[in-house]
Structures are given as C-alpha cells and as structure tokens.
Design a protein around this nucleic acid. Structure first.
Length: 478
RNA sequence: UCCCCUGUAGCUCAAUUGGUAGAGCGAGCGGCUGUUAACCGCUAGGUUGCUGGUUCGAGUCCAGCCGGGGGAGCCA
C-alpha cells in the first residue's frame, strides 16, 4: 500500500459532471471537505457524508470503529465539521450511491464549536432565513447548486462571446457621466460628510472631491461600450451594475451583474438574432455541464425548469411589434381578460401585460420591438414613422423582462433633436456625440440581467438567492 | 415610495370568545440498524421583535417604532 494517496475532489471520486475518470474503484485517495451528516451503526461503523462543492452530490465515507480516533473524533463529528480523510474507493454495498470511500484515516481539521448553534444544520430552511446567514448558506444543497450554475453560466457567456468574435471591454465602475439615465445612482465621494465644502452659491463644491467632479457608481456600461463598439465592431461588458432605486421586489437588486453586448453595422433585427442565439447557447451549456444541479432544481425547486430550457433552445423566439402586442392585449380585454391597467397604443407595457403576452398569449420567450418613442430613452434610434424607436424587450415566462435593448441613434442631427426633446443638455453628451461625428455607423446592443437569467434557468423565485451576497435597500450585512 | 401579509424555542409553525406557552425538525444523551429526509425513547431550550397603552389579567386588543415577506412602480 503506497504511503501517499492523491488528493482528489468528491466529483472525481463519484464521477460527477466533468470528472476526468482518473479515479476508479480500488483507487486510494485523500478527500477534504465538510460533513453533511453522520450516521452511526452499532454494528461498529459510521457513515459520513462529505461534500466539497465540486459537484452536487456528497460522497459517503464508511468508517470502521477500529480506527484509533473513532470514539474521540469520528463519533463526535457533526454537520459542518471540516475533515480530511484517506481511504479506498469501493463499490457500495448499500443503496443510494454506487461508489463510496472505505476510510483508513479521518483527520478533523475544524470542529463545529457548538452544534446547537450551528446556523445550517441538516434540516430544511427557508430561503428568507438563509439570507440572514449568507456566509454559511453556500454549504446547503440549494446554494452550492446556485453557485455552480452561476459559474457555469458566467463561463458560458465569455466562451460564447469569445468564439463569436466579441471582445470583453471593462467599462468603468465609477462614472463621471451624470447622464446615464437608467435610474437613481449611488454617489462616490471622499468628501467629509460632516463638513461639506460649498460654492459661493451654497451648492456642494464637487471640485473639492476626489475626482474634482461629481461621480457615481455605474448604472450601465452601455455608453462607454459604444465607443469600443465603434472601433472593435463586436464587444460586450459583463460586470457589476448599481441602482439606488428603492425597489423591493424579487426581481431587483441594488447591485447586480449585467451583460451588455454591442455590435456595429447592425440593426434591431440583428440585435434580436444576437439575443436569441446567445441565450440559447448559454442555456445549452448549462444543460450539458450541470445536469446534477439542474436535476436538483427540477426535483426540489421547479419541476418544469429542465423541460423549459430544453424547449427554449429548440424553439425560435416569438417576435412581435409593440403595435401588434397592444392590439393583442386590446383584443384580450375585449374578450374578457381583466387587467388593472388600461391598454392603449402609447402606454408602457405593465408587468401584468408582459406576463400575459409571454405566459398566456405565446407561452414562450417573446421579443417585443419598436416601442413609442416617448416612453423610451433618447439614444434609441428613431424609426421612419417618427412615432416609434427601434427598441426591444425580451420577455420570459415567470420572470418578465430579462433583456432591454435597442438599435442606437447613429445620426447626429436626430440624436441632438432627441436629447433636446427629452430636456437634456447636448453639452453633457459631448463624447457620445463625437462617436456620431467621426465615422458613425448603425449599431445596436442590449442589457441582460444576469440574476434574472439565472432565475429563469433554475426556477429560483428571488434574485436575492442567486447572487452570493445580495444588496437591497436596508441590507448590506455581509 | 405605495398597498397587503407577517414577527412565539436554534429553525418551521400551534395556542379555542383576552386567563401568564405547545408540537415537529434540529441539538444532547441512550437504544437499534450497511446506514442514507433513518427509526424508537429521554432531556435541555422561550421577559411571545421593541416601547407604551387598555384590562383584575395581553402571545392574543390599541398606538408608535424596528425587522421579514409578497405585490406595484422603476427597471435588468
């Protein structure tokens, strides 16, 4: 018997997703991880479930009572203890797993001081409770699965863009642009709050601040990424985004991650094509790479999640003009469907309308295109009808809007007119306008909320449970 | 920010018309078992979110505050 056993992951031992197959029955290995449960048999052995996060399932270690530290250590193990064990991988005699580890030694690395107070014992917990122990919730089945899915989708995002000729652009987190216009912003400042410098007029004197001007956390990388788009043709951002809106819903976070591709020499239809093939691809990757976690979400969280994704990657998105969407809604109202908000051309679609369109009307993802110009941002391209802009929203059943995007206004005169109409100041957009002065091209892009995408994929109902440490109004504990 | 619901043991919840708190899970101890949401028995554990009020008496009624959840708006 060799003295050294190679250290391997639980995933390698039990042959989970992505395992290399290097570990077979008969291999002698070392495994490190945390105890999920311990079951004693008075026949003189204990069963320890060990997880290390490398895949969904834990591995069962079978420990005989003749180990020297069986009584003083092994029989005192409780949920959450960290251990290092060596042993031989073997076919299991019991049901529930095919392979297990017959332990030759068990070393306790870290005890759980007081099992009575361990916040995540092996029992059911509500998600609300687990948010209060966000530092320990990744040890639960659900949150380790969420973490792996998050990683898998993140990698799939970068891989897809890379393989399709996109460049990842790191747009700034701190922005001096006060004109991003996508909601309330968090101020970034080093001014002494107890002693704020004032101008002669009595206003806050931001020239004394760190950047010599007013700065905030970004609400979108779009304006910045457009400049790289008009040089590198196909670009994207993927990073944190901050909104200081006082939003208290299962779909909003103050800090969330957003994916924003931007493509040059492209129109709204190209944009919708991009959204569709991109989304399909990352979901295909998820289905292929995390069957263990997805099976868990199907069994315990949302029965339909796998079917839904399999459908999603097969079926083409429904595309619908805003005008036709409103017509469909009006027709529904005429035949008895009740909405809290009235429907007519010119309104922004309410959540209930979007839900009806995607869930009732077509039953799958839908791209709504060409919205009235008055309800959309200044930078969206004005259509020839002069009433609508080339905007699009992708709506998904159960989650609502996951993508908002548009073809951008590339004509300087029209852009200036729109800035004017919106009561904004063209001076503030000098560099953005430069992009239209010097070699402008039609271009388009969109923003995809990463946590919402995860919610759609997993069936998890609240975006607060899809980001490791959620930030919401009144909550930034961890 | 608005509307609704909610706050009792470590966790999830009970407590009849106001009469000073119970269960399940978890934890500890013991029994049993190649066990696996294990099972059986025993034990410990609560100034009922906070402050004030009504009452002989408040978990229960009232007011304010704080926390949590759901929905709306805003959006991703």
């Amino acid at each position: 018997m060799p003295d050294v056993a190679p250290t391997v992951s639980v995933c390698e031992v039990i042959g989970g997703p992505g395992a290399t197959g290097a570990v077979q029955a008969g291999s002698r290995v070392e495994v490190r991880g945390w105890v999920r449960t311990r079951r004693d048999s008075k026949a003189g052995l204990s069963f320890i479930q060990v997880h290390d996060g490398s895949c969904f399932d834990s591995v069962q270690a079978v420990v005989q009572s003749d180990l020297p530290n069986y009584v003083e250590d092994v029989q005192r193990l409780t949920t959450g203890c960290s251990i290092k064990l060596t042993g031989v991988v073997a076919e299991s005699q019991g049901k529930g797993q095919s392979l297990e580890i017959h332990a030759e030694s068990v070393e306790v690395i870290g005890w759980v001081d007081d099992p009575e107070t361990y916040p995540v014992p092996a029992k059911r917990h509500t998600f609300e409770y687990l948010r209060e122990v966000a530092h320990l919730r990744p040890r639960t089945n659900t949150f380790s699965a969420v973490a792996r899915v998050r990683h898998c989708l993140s990698q799939a995002v970068h891989r897809w863009f890379d393989e399709n000729g996109f460049f990842w652009v790191h747009t700034p987190i701190v922005t001096g642009s006060d004109c991003e216009g996508a909601g309330e912003m968090f101020r970034v400042s080093t001014l002494d709050l107890a002693n704020i410098p004032r101008t002669e007029e009595g206003d806050v004197d931001f020239s004394k601040d760190f950047f010599g001007r007013e700065t905030n956390l970004t609400v979108s990388g779009q304006l910045n990424v457009e400049s790289y788009c008009l040089a590198l043709s196909k670009v994207y951002t993927f990073g944190p985004t901050f909104r200081a809106e006082n939003s208290n819903t299962s779909r909003h976070l103050a800090e969330f991650w957003m994916i924003e591709p931007e493509i040059a020499f492209a129109d709204l239809s190209d944009n919708a094509d991009l959204a569709e093939s991109f989304l399909k691809s990352i979901f295909e990757s998820l289905l292929a790479e995390r069957p263990d976690d997805m099976a868990f979400f199907r069994d315990r969280i949302d029965k339909g999640c796998i079917d839904r994704l399999e459908q999603f990657v097969k079926v083409s998105f429904e595309r619908m003009e805003y005008t036709d969407a409103v017509a469909a809604l009006e027709k529904a109202v005429a035949s008895g469907t009740k909405f809290d908000y009235p429907v007519s051309w010119g309104i922004d679609l309410q959540s209930e309308h979007e839900r009806w369109l995607t869930e009732e009307h077509v039953g799958r993802p839908i791209v709504v295109m060409n919205y009235p110009k008055d309800i959309k941002a200044f930078y969206m391209r004005l259509n020839d009808d002069e009433r609508t802009v080339a905007a699009m929203d992708v709506l998904a059943p159960g989650i609502g809007e996951i993508i908002g995007g548009a073809q951008r206004e590339e004509r300087l005169d029209v852009l200036d007119r729109r800035i004017d109409e919106m009561g904004l100041d063209t001076e503030d957009y000098w560099w953005y306008r430069d992009l239209r002065k010097y070699g402008t091209v039609p271009h388009a892009g969109f923003g995809l909320g990463f946590e919402r995408t995860m919610a759609y994929a997993t069936g998890m109902a609240n975006v607060r449970d899809l980001i490791p440490f959620p930030r919401t109004p009144n909550t930034a504990t961890f």
